[in-house]
Structure formats: C-alpha cells, structure tokens
C-alpha cells in the first residue's frame, strides 16, 4: 500500500516533471531515439526485402535474419554495439544505442517484408505481367500494396520492441526512460525503478495501439475483406 502511495508521490513530485531528468524530456529522448532507429531500420530492412521478394531471390537471407534475431538477446546487441561505436569514435550514449536498436529492428522487418512480397498471389502477378505492367509498376502498384498489411504489422512489432529495448540505452550512458530504471537501481530506489518500468510499458502499449490504428487506416479495403489471420513472424521475446 505504502509502495503504491510512494509511486504516486513520485509521479506527483514536480521535480520529476522538469529539467533534463524530468519525465517529458526522458519521454522525448526515448521517442526520438526509437524513431530514428525505426526510420533507419525501415529503410535498410524493407527496401532490400521488397526488391528481393519481387525477384523471388534471397530466401536464405530472410531465414538467417529471423533466426539471428531470435537467437541474439537485445542485451547482447547493446553489448556488441558499444565496442563498435567506440571503435568508430562515436563514443557512449546515443550512438551505440541507436546502432543496437537498428540492428535489432532490421531482421523482423526484412523477413516479413520479404516473405510478404514473395508470397503475393502468383496468379495476380502473372495477370499483371500479362497485361503489360512493367516490373517496377508491378512492384509499386501490386506487390507492395498487397504486402502492405504484413509489412506494417512487422513495423509495429519492431517498433514496440525498439521502444522496449531503448530502455537498455541507459546502461551505456544514454538518457531515455531507462535512466529511471538504471539510476533507481544504482541508488536502491525501488520506487524510481518501478516508475521507470511503468513509463516504458505505457510507451510500448501506446506504440502498439498507435501503429495498430495506422494499419487500419492505410490497409486497402479490398485486402481487409480477404484477410485471415495476421501472418507476422514475431521475434522471440528477449
């Protein structure tokens, strides 16, 4: 009882709402880094995947990507990113965290975008070719729109994972909501640890819901009528 009261008190404390260590700034840092990471990962993961899926080549890569993503825990990715970042002269904090998050987000987006495009109904693709659509036209107007629901679902899954994992950035001296958890831990302030965890959880849920709404908005109507179950391959929880 008193613990919950302490948590409420923590949230009520104006000190925790202002300055560089305040909730608004920590949320901003967290969201900013996650957004950068997702944008880079989406470019690096989805574009090659869509092209390879169109050519129906590179299936081995897709399988390898998802397997690696399943095998390597997020914590290890951060640990691996740190020396790389230092070696590149990028130092601690922002860059190793970004590197790790990008590496984390690429595989599920790559694999799902690849299989989604590759598995577009071959009859539809053949009809498109037979009518004289160019390969680029088929990719842009047929394959990508038809794969879009799965691609967006994969983006959502990755985004939630990135938001959750960005917490670990605090270990390598970056800000974000992980600060509360790490600093609270170091000072044995369980209330702060709990509050930090709660904020991360809320942000992750908001991400999930937000992307879910976006998917509903952009999914072509004709596809929604077709859709069965969601076919996204989720990486194992880490």
């Amino acid at each position: 009882m008193s613990f919950l009261a302490d948590v409420l008190a923590w949230f009520a404390d104006p000190v925790n709402w202002s300055g560089s260590g305040g909730i608004p700034n920590r949320v901003f840092e967290h969201v900013q880094l996650s957004t950068f990471a997702m944008m880079i990962a989406a470019l690096l993961g989805i574009i090659p995947a869509v092209i390879l899926g169109h050519a129906r080549r590179g299936g081995v890569l897709a399988v390898a990507a998802v397997n690696i993503a399943r095998a390597v825990p997020s914590f290890a990715i951060i640990a691996l990113a740190l020396p790389v970042s230092i070696a590149l002269g990028l130092g601690l904090g922002f860059w190793p965290t970004l590197l790790a998050l990008v590496a984390l987000a690429i595989p599920p987006m790559f694999t799902n975008a690849y299989t989604a495009v590759r598995d577009v109904d071959p009859g539809v693709v053949e009809a498109a070719r037979g009518m004289g659509m160019t390969p680029a036209g088929i990719l842009a107007k047929v394959e990508v729109p038809m794969a879009l629901p799965i691609i967006l679902a994969a983006v959502r899954v990755s985004a939630v994972q990135v938001v959750a994992t960005a917490t670990l950035g605090a270990i390598v001296a970056w800000g974000g909501l992980g600060r509360y958890v790490i600093d609270g831990f170091a000072t044995r302030n369980n209330v702060e640890v709990f509050a930090g965890g709660l904020l991360v959880a809320l942000l992750a849920v908001a991400t999930e819901v937000g992307f879910g709404v976006l998917e509903r908005l952009v999914e072509p109507r004709g596809l929604r009528m077709l859709r069965g179950q969601e076919q996204v391959v989720r990486p194992a929880p880490t």
């Binding site: 053949e126 009809a127 004709g222």
Partner: peptide, 29 residues
C-alpha cells in the same frame, strides 16, 4: 510489356487485384 498491352490475357487463377475495385481492375490497361 508494350506487346502485352495489345493482347488480352485471361487465366484460370483470374488474378484480379484484390486491393482494387472492379472498376479499377478493368481500367488497368
């Protein structure tokens, strides 16, 4: 692809574009 635009093509799988309306499908070529 230019040759194909002058040759109608109908297959067993039909291959209609599921994300496009019937009118949009017919309007392809």
């Amino acid at each position: 692809h230019l040759l194909r635009r002058k040759i109608g093509y109908v297959i067993q799988q039909i291959g209609l574009f599921p994300h496009r309306t019937i009118a949009e499908n017919i309007a392809t070529v």
